[in-house]
Amino acid sequence: MYSQGLIGAKTETEEDEAFLARFQARIDAEEKIEPNDPMPEGYRRTLVRQIGQHAHSEIVGMLPEGNWITRAPSLKRKAALLAKVQDEGGHGLYLYCAAETLGVSREEMTEELLSGKAKYSSIFNYPTLTWADIGAIGWLVDGAAIMNQIPLCRCSYGPYARAMIRVCKEESFHQRQGYEIMMTLAGGTPEQKELAQDALNRWWWPSLMMFGPHDSASQHGDQSMKWKIKRFTNDELRQKFVDATVPQGEYLGLTFPDPDLKWNEDKQGYDFGAIDWDEFWRVVKGGGSMNRERIAVRRKAWEDGAWVREAALAHADKRRARREASKMAAE
């Protein structure tokens, strides 16, 4: 689950015009760019950054949901949540593999995440306070991610596009599962309905922020669109999400925490209130309630696991040496 306008990628390139024109012609012809194809350095860098952010988001995203596995309210929900969190780890793995095709190793990307250099989706810097948050994340956060990721299945970079096809299938399953949790809560006891409403209140605005800054404030949208890494602008995707999600919330009998939200007959879409961009930038820059903790937890897992990784390498080396020694003895 991930979606956010790319933060801080440099897209300028230094290749000559003929090279760039040839590359652009391939993009315009809807050809897929594959790992060994010539590509502008800016294209490569943008993709490494974007796929890396996406992979990191999947990995960090395991934490807020993992927070409820041991407290899931029924065995059925526990099993579904375990499967979901495992899927997210799987998405992280194929995305790291897709990024590796661009010449950056998983270790390097991990180091960048742990040092705070690489970003991940800011939504995971919000805490999961109640069980209903698991429903809201599936419904809203995965729903927003799908809006962003469906067009990525047609991304010009082949390995990323192909990874996205599988990811999208699983995400849409997660989204339905999340909505089903919300439906159970909204149709349950008054206390359960209150949990659902409270979760919607807390997750609605951060979900809208997942699409990134307004088009007018987005620095690299144009180049990414031209290279067909992105197919829609942040605001277009955000509007699609609002239009798809509001009727779903109304069906649940819940209210959205936005007094300005209303149907606009002329544009055949919903108008909605102003997003608090100060909050967005505060959380992106490390000021969310969970930023420090999420990274600290990942760093601890990485550091505490160092001896395990070293042992696995040492064992593999020893085994190879033993095999070679026995081969030599036999000769």
Partner: peptide
């Protein structure tokens, strides 16, 4: 399941 997200490597996660 307490290990989820805290494993020594992604494969174990």
């Amino acid at each position: 399941s307490e290990w989820c997200g805290h494993a020594p490597m992604l494969e174990e996660d």
